[in-house]
Structures are given as C-alpha cells and as structure tokens.
C-alpha cells in the first residue's frame, strides 16, 4: 500500500473537492496550488503570523502547520467563502467600512480569525478582540482599525436588520 500519496475529499466553502496529495503536502499549499484559492496567504510559514488562517471543522487554524491529508473528510472555510451572493460578510464589511487594513497581506487571515472569534463570542470586549486576534500579525495598522472593524462586524451581526450607516 502506498502511504505517501493519499486521495482526499474536503468540503471547501460548501463544495466537495477531491484530489491526490503527497503525505507531506501542507494544507496551505493544497489550498493555493491545488484548489487555486489564493486568498489564503503564506506569510511566515512557521505558525507565527496567521496569514494562512482558515476555518477547519469550525475552528480557526493555521494552514501552514497542518498537512493536507489531515483535512480529509473535513469542512473548510477560506476567505473566498465569506461573501454570499456578491454580498460581503459583515466581517468583510467591517474591514471595508473601518479601513481595517493597509497593505492587505494579513487581511484574509484577520478576516477568518475575526469570523471565528465572533462565532464563539458575538459580543466581545476590546480586550477579548485583541486577545482573539493575537495569533494574527499586522505590520501596518497598529491594530486600532482592525479592532474597530471587528467591533463593527460584531454589532452588524447582532442586529442583522439594522440599517447600514452611510459611508
């Protein structure tokens, strides 16, 4: 039996995707190169920076430090799966409205972690937000606008019917 190649099937953003991968293929490379979903970024490659964050079976994880074969049978959400029917997810809208980015490199990871954080804790304090995103590094913003973006999203998600403030 060949144990260095594996056929895996992963539900990615609601769609079942199948592929053959090497044992040593990292999840982030599978996402970017095999699935062609390049929204997930590679930053430090050593589980420090969080640019590669995706949601795997409901938990935010760093895809540079997980093997693709470990995702077999799991559900994965990447940044491409946040927007629905051309409408930004409240988390994305928050980053847009509050300008929670500058260069944008950390943004996909920040979005995914913020999404996970708000699933767990729909009404986080500023401290809880800062602690929640402590595994995602941003070298531009100083985090102030990112925290505001998450606060915006939290409010939006708690009151889905509230009118969107004018830009």
């Amino acid at each position: 039996m060949n144990m260095s190649r594996h056929h895996i099937s992963v539900t990615v953003n609601g769609n079942k995707r199948e592929a053959d991968v090497d044992s040593r293929t990292l999840l982030v490379h599978f996402i970017r190169e095999t699935l062609g979903l390049t929204g997930t970024h590679i930053g430090c490659d050593t589980s420090n920076c969080g640019a590669c964050t995706v949601i795997l079976d409901g938990k935010a994880v760093k895809s540079c430090t997980i093997l693709a074969v470990q995702a077999e049978g799991k559900e994965m959400l990447t940044v491409e799966g946040l927007a629905k029917d051309g409408k930004l997810h409240p988390v994305q809208e928050g980053f847009w409205e509050k300008h929670g980015l500058q260069c944008g490199f950390c943004t996909p990871g920040m979005l995914m972690t913020s999404y996970w954080l708000l699933q767990k804790n729909p009404n986080p304090t500023e401290e809880e937000i800062r602690r929640g995103i402590s595994g995602n590094l941003c070298r531009c913003t100083g985090y102030v606008k990112i925290v505001e973006a998450v606060q915006y999203a939290a409010q939006k998600m708690r009151q889905p019917e509230a009118p969107v403030p004018a830009r």
């Binding site: 589980s47 969080g50 935010a60 760093k62 997980i66 972690t113 929640g132 402590s134 595994g135 995602n136």
Partner: peptide
C-alpha cells in the same frame, strides 16, 4: 501558550 489559533490545534 502561543496564540488562540495554535491553542485550537
């Protein structure tokens, strides 16, 4: 330990 994402794994 490390950060929340690492603590998930």
């Amino acid at each position: 330990i490390a950060d929340p994402l690492v603590r998930n794994m």
